Simulated scan of single mutants.
Amino acid sequence: MKRLIRTALAVVTLLCTAACVRHTIIPDDELAQIFHDAFLTNAYIGSQNVRIDSLNIYEPIFARYGYTTEDVQYTIGNFSKRKSARLGDVVELAIDRLEEEGKRYDREVAILDTIDNVARRTFTRTVLSDSLIRVRSLRDTARLSFVVDVEPGEYRLTMKYLVDSLDRNDRVLRSRMWIERNDSTQAYPYTLTLRRHREESFTRTFRVDTSHRRLHLHLLTFTDRSPKRPSVTVSDLRLTHTPETRTAVDSLYIKQLDVRIFADEFFRAALPKDSL
């Protein structure tokens, strides 16, 4: 805070050149608001790496409140004659306003983040689910293959699996997953090696855009050329889709507003009388 006050006083000093002609004395509250706007201007200029060699950039700020540069200079110079007022108090008031605005903007950003999260949760839907799938023969493996048409957004796969001691395959078992592009090529291929003899949890997220059309999930594949009888259990299988944030928020607003352009009475008045 002290460093900010020193910087603020330095800015004020630049504005304060001696004036011989008497001008309007600006009330402390308005002067604090002028300092507030000047600080924001300095911050913007600094962030954009703009080199300013003239103090004319402040004149529009003064004019917005109905004052001239000379009025500001005279008011600042007059503080040394006022026993009951300190220039530092006005600077601190401007800083307090900046900090209060910063807190308010932080809250507004947090609210927007909350809206985004609510919208995403509201329009998250389950694409496929199954509480229990047992694979005890080679023919059963088809029950663990899924091909899903996709829309832009996020797909999240969760499941538990168990490869038990009755499985007769010598080599490892795997899951293979990928997104199919519109040109039929594969994107983001992923292979999971299935561990044996204990239940494992698995989660995978796929991000889909307009260049994709299908999601392929083959949860049980073999590395043996001649696979043997498997013994695999998949439980709590769930695939959910969450649309893109912008789409979800738009849908949420439409759902909440429920805007009706014309009242029912408008349509009733437009109908032929014999149809009523």
Results as ranks from 00 to 15, higher is better:
S165I: 09
T7I: 11
L98Y: 04
P60S: 05
N78L: 10
T114L: 15
M159L: 15
V12I: 15
Y105I: 15
D258Q: 15
Q186N: 11
I57Q: 11
L93N: 13
K228P: 03
R104S: 13
A248V: 03
N169H: 08
L166Y: 10
D96K: 15
L132W: 08
F123E: 00
T124Y: 02
G66W: 09
L257A: 13
L215W: 03
R134A: 14
T223W: 01
V234H: 01
S129R: 09
E151S: 12
H197E: 12
P243W: 02
D53V: 06
R238F: 02
R214M: 04
I254R: 13
G77W: 08
V91L: 15
S84C: 02
Q186R: 15
L162V: 03
E101Q: 13
K81I: 11
L252R: 04
E59Q: 11
E30Y: 02
H23V: 01
L219M: 13
S211Q: 07
A119S: 09
D89M: 06
L237D: 01
I45F: 12
I133E: 06
F35T: 05
R120K: 15
R143N: 04
R171M: 11
K103M: 11
R125P: 02
L276E: 13
R196G: 03
I52D: 05
P227L: 04
D28P: 03
A19K: 14
Y190G: 00
E108R: 12
K103S: 05
R97G: 06
V259A: 14
C20P: 00
R64Q: 13
E200P: 00
D53Q: 09
L157V: 03
R136A: 14
S165K: 11
F146P: 00
P227F: 08
R82W: 08
N56L: 14
I26H: 08
R3P: 04
Y67I: 02
V12T: 12
R213W: 00
V109Y: 12
R168D: 11
T126R: 08
V127E: 10
S129C: 07
S231N: 10
S201P: 05
V163S: 05
F39A: 05
Y155T: 00
R268D: 14
A19D: 04
D274H: 15
R174P: 01
A142H: 07
R196S: 06
G102A: 12
P152N: 07
G46I: 07
L31M: 15
T245G: 04
T75M: 05
S131C: 01
D258M: 07
E199W: 05
V232Q: 05
L144R: 01
E101D: 15
E151C: 03
S275T: 13
T69N: 10
F123D: 00
P60G: 05
T191I: 09
S165G: 03
T13F: 09
F222V: 05
V208D: 02
E199I: 14
S84A: 09
M159S: 03
D250R: 15
L173N: 03
D183L: 07
R168H: 09
S54C: 10
R104W: 12
T75C: 05
R134F: 06
